[in-house]
Amino acid sequence: MARNQLLLSGKDVTKIFSNKKKKTIAVDHVNFEFESGEIISIVGESGSGKTTLAKMILGLLNPSSGEIIFRGRPIELKTREKRIEYWRNVQPIFQDPFSSFNIFKKVDNVLLDCIKLLNITLKKDEKYKKIEEACNFVNLRFGEIYNKYPFELSGGQMQRLMIARVLLIRPRLVIADEPTSMIDACSRASILDALMKLRDEIGTTVVFITHDIGLAYYVSDKIFVMKEGRFVEEGFPDDVILNPTEEYTKHLISDVPKIESRWAL
């Protein structure tokens, strides 16, 4: 896929949740431009609006106002065909991998379905070869997942499986909402590794949502800092994380446990 072309942009994207009691402005007039082949991190405290923005980009929520533009056209998901077409290009990786898989379906069949989605005809062994490649890519052995149901796998294995799934579909955009929060450091490393490979080898754009600033700093090409529904700071990781200008960003960074020096508690 071509790199450094405008892939997704947002103009004054806003989401207001309201009920009888109160009105919450979850996302407040945000503007952004994401290019192809880059990893963009969105960081911010709990409740700052990260997931709400992600859902709007995925077309799971409609903005209250503003516009999200994908490859030059406002996203429009009125018909089933339009939705299928959009989701071939834009894929999620969610926080809780178990809720994203049908528990009654063996996981290798889930991967086979992804290949069907591509509308190409392959022989059975060619399909399995593709699946095996995707598994290797995320450090899963095919034997670990073959003939298994989701609940027979660990959280870390499931999360890597979700990435394998995305790999088979080869979307232009991946929205990963806290994909590593459930898992330990080692499996996390292999997920970050897989996201970087997606970018480097397929040219996928990855929107990586996290409240772990260390991870954001490590993987991303650009970082957006979100506070109360707005982007308060954005730029290259070395600028935003090593030389933040906003008080809020400085504050967030100082709260991250580090190993250079211990907290004074």
Binding site: C186, L192, I213, Y217, P257
Partner: peptide, 20 residues
Amino acid sequence: SIIVPEKGIKGKKLTVIPGA
């Protein structure tokens, strides 16, 4: 495989332990 927002981390090759 520790990742912290400190200089020198970016570009560091992380250890991935394969398998389960």
